[in-house]
Design a protein around this nucleic acid. Structure first.
Length: 697
RNA sequence: GCCGAGGUAGCCUAGCUGGUUGGGGCGCCUGACUCAUAAUCAGGAGGUCGGGGGUUCGAAUCCCCCCCUCGGCACCA
């Protein structure tokens, strides 16, 4: 028995092609396993907790559950339409899931892997909330430099425990933060280091996941704070706290298994008695949670451990890094489903484009080419020409007389698929049936049944029977990738592929063919053009929006912008995860400042007199800048974009009364102002030559 | 800078425990055929296997150095 799970979609946004990159191959894998006679349970569900959901719901004027309902429904609908067929698709805000989570937390407590610890959390009385580390600024107790909550990032680099920092201030409103003691709970991750090293040595799955995980474990592990100050989530037993999302989310794999097993099997066989192979399909961005936190939690609560973690590579769109905010995104519902294209096309593209571990590039042009020239021209055409020929010339009644070579080819395809699955190579599996289809076309072409029908009806029947056998095998072997189409087409061949196994592909029987229909309709070039157009418009709009935002925020100080920017950070997948992990996410602050406040900024034009790279750093330049009679040393993170020699003699706006800081051991007294274009600094220059030291206002 | 994963024809790639002329698919060119969704079949052009050294009778494949891409860590006041 095997349990296959997929990383839970976070219920605060719509499904895009990046999601499908892991769900579709997982579904394909499950369907193949079943076809090979394996008993499989396939579960997934919505991840419903966490701060971003609470905040998003607030923004929309909804309760968290109401927001979750929307996206839970959305994902279910998307999966249904694209034939990703879970045995159970649950949600982590369900009662049964809360129970399971609490049970596991209790077990961890009993086993001594969770301990309480009073921590001092910075709290801003003005904003009336706890402040996450990065929104706290104060003085390092070790070196006296300015530091942020969790780390003396500018001075000695020491890690700071909550409460250590002196003179804490709220970075948002500037008010003095106070410390409030609060009891939180920690998971003893550090005790699992040896276990994890051993465990990862035998864990199966894709190398991309395993290599990362091994790298993490060899580095420093820290005990993990697993409680949060929130209302929304799984209550921590006996406290007015909620369990951290990343604790309860993977437990969904267990709770959803329970539901999927109801009335059939005992889920304990899987999760407590180790009687099933457990495989997690995930995206590359959540390897840490699945290879480190999760196995440690399972181990600590005496549950079964996963056997494999299969991580899919990243998705690119039109050759560019996937990015929602920049418009490089393909939405499943609004783009693909709305286009009316066969959903099997997308499945084929996602599975067949490249190896599961590698980056997948989604391009509408390539999509059209692959579908029309491979899937339809080769496979679709073969299925249709053969069945159509049999129906037209033999009334669909064909006696079983199959060429042995063809049987060998089918056998070889099955073998190739089986081996490919063992290596998580879904492209190779789909190539196997495409090769068999080529074999079929070849066979048909060489046999020339259209000639034989006139000269030797018996020989002709043999050729057709052989091709029909290949067609039947093709329907069966491609069904996991193309379920919708092959379900329908198997009807023309007189069987139901949903009930078929790979053995049926080798079973020789006479055929009764019904009048076939074309399995796929071609993707029209106009359709591709239309979809590309939608995409280009979206990208253009995103660029415009970015410019506008820049204009609006351009007047603010960089510091304010940074803080606001962090909240609005939606550049892509990975950042979503970071956002989800954020300790306590702040609400947006309108951050209007008065003229008096503005006057506090000593902005001037400076002239670069010297510039050099700081050794051992990638981004830092050490600049000496003439700010009018005085030469300041300033460190700027622009080395990736500007050469030191090009900067000498140039004029720059500079914030002179910036608090001094140390970066890589070099003191910086001042800050260069630059436009931030997707993280790329773009320097600004005065319109005319002005004297160094000229005030900016 | 450190650590991973890669760099093979226009594109996606196989090969990577060294050994006959580096395979396949898409695209491209030519021919054949007409059962079929201008589909199919045959043939062909196209590669200094990132660059440079080295080991070897022989390297895409092993060793060293370098370059580039992607990702993680450090770091953008």
């Amino acid at each position: 028995m095997k349990l296959i799970t997929c990383g839970l979609p976070y219920a605060n946004g719509k499904a895009h092609i990046g999601h499908l990159r892991t769900y579709v191959p997982a579904d394909v894998y499950v369907r193949y396993l079943r076809m090979f006679g394996e008993e499989v349970i396939f579960v997934c569900g919505s991840d419903c907790h966490g701060t971003p959901i609470v905040i998003n719901a607030e923004k929309e004027g909804l309760k968290p559950k109401e927001l979750v309902d929307i996206y839970h429904e959305h994902f279910q609908e998307v999966f249904r339409k694209i034939d990703v067929n879970f045995d159970y698709f649950g949600r982590t805000d369900a009662e049964y899931h809360h129970e399971r989570t609490q049970e596991i937390v209790k077990r961890l407590l009993e086993n001594g892997y969770i301990y309480p610890k009073e921590i001092e959390l910075a709290y801003c009385p003005n904003c009336d909330r706890f402040l996450p580390d990065r929104y706290v600024e104060g003085v390092c107790p070790y070196c006296g430099e300015i530091a942020r909550g969790d780390e003396c990032d500018q001075g000695c680099g020491r890690h700071l425990e909550p409460g250590e920092i002196l003179e804490p201030r709220c970075k948002i409103c500037g008010a003095k933060a106070i410390y409030r003691k609060q009891k939180h709970y920690f998971f003893r991750l550090t005790e699992f280091k040896d276990f994890l090293l051993e465990f990862l040595g035998k864990l199966g799955g894709t190398e991309n996941a395993l290599n990362y995980a091994k790298q993490w474990v060899t580095m420093e592990l820290k005990d993990w704070c697993i409680t949060r100050n929130l209302e929304w989530g799984v209550k921590f037993p006996g406290e007015d706290l909620v369990v951290y999302v990343w604790v309860d989310a993977p437990i969904g794999y267990i709770s959803f298994t329970e539901k999927a097993c109801e009335g059939r099997i005992d889920w304990r066989d899987i999760w407590l008695r180790n009687k099933a192979e457990i495989v997690h399909f995930i995206g590359l961005d959540i390897v840490y949670h699945h290879c480190i936190f999760w196995p440690a939690m399972l181990k600590g609560s005496d549950y079964s451990l996963p056997n494999a973690v299969v991580a899919s590579g990243m998705v690119k769109v039109e050759g560019k890094t996937f990015s929602k905010s920049r418009g490089y995104v393909v939405w499943v519902e609004d783009d693909y489903l709305a286009s009316g294209l066969n959903t099997d096309f997308l499945r084929y593209y996602l599975v067949n484009y490249t190896s599961h571990q590698k980056d997948l590039n989604f391009s509408w042009e390539v999509f059209g080419d692959k579908i029309n020239n491979e899937l339809i021209a080769n496979l679709g055409n073969f299925l249709y020409r053969v069945t159509h020929f049999a129906w037209k010339n033999f009334d669909g009644e064909i006696q079983a007389k199959v060429d042995r070579n063809a049987m060998n080819a089918i056998q070889a395809a099955i073998k190739k698929i089986k081996e490919a699955l063992e290596n998580w190579e879904f492209k190779v599996a789909s190539d196997a049936f495409m090769e068999l289809s080529s074999f079929g076309n070849n066979y048909f072409q060489n046999a020339k049944p259209w000639d034989l029908i006139k000269s030797d009806r018996n020989e002709c029947e043999k050729a057709v029977a052989t091709c029909l056998q290949i067609a039947k095998a093709l329907v069966i072997l491609s069904y996991p990738v193309l379920p919708k189409t092959m379900k329908k087409f198997s009807g023309f061949l007189g069987f139901d592929v949903e009930k078929a196994t790979t053995d049926d592909a080798l079973k020789i029987e006479s055929f009764k063919i019904k009048k076939p229909e074309i399995p796929f309709t071609k993707v029209l070039p106009e359709k591709i053009a239309e979809l590309e157009d939608t995409m280009h418009k979206r990208i253009a709009m995103a660029e415009k929006k970015e410019e506008k935002e820049f204009e609006e925020t351009g007047k603010e100080t960089r510091e304010v912008k940074e803080v606001v920017g962090e909240i609005e950070n939606v550049k892509g997948e990975v950042e979503d995860v970071k956002e989800k992990e954020g300790e306590i996410v702040m609400e947006e602050n309108p951050s209007e400042i008065s003229f008096d406040e503005f006057k506090k900024l000593d902005l001037r034009i400076g002239k670069v007199v010297k510039a050099e790279k700081i050794e051992k750093s990638k981004k830092l330049l050490r600049l000496e800048i003439d700010i009018g009679g005085e030469v300041r040393q300033v460190v700027a993170g622009i080395a990736e974009y500007y050469k030191p020699e090009d900067l000498i003699g140039r004029l720059l706006p500079i914030l002179v009364n910036m608090k001094p800081a140390k970066l890589m051991g070099v003191e910086s007294r001042g800050m260069i102002l630059a436009a931030d274009v997707n993280g790329e600094p773009v320097l600004l220059y005065p319109d005319k030559e002005v004297k160094p030291g000229t005030k900016i206002r």
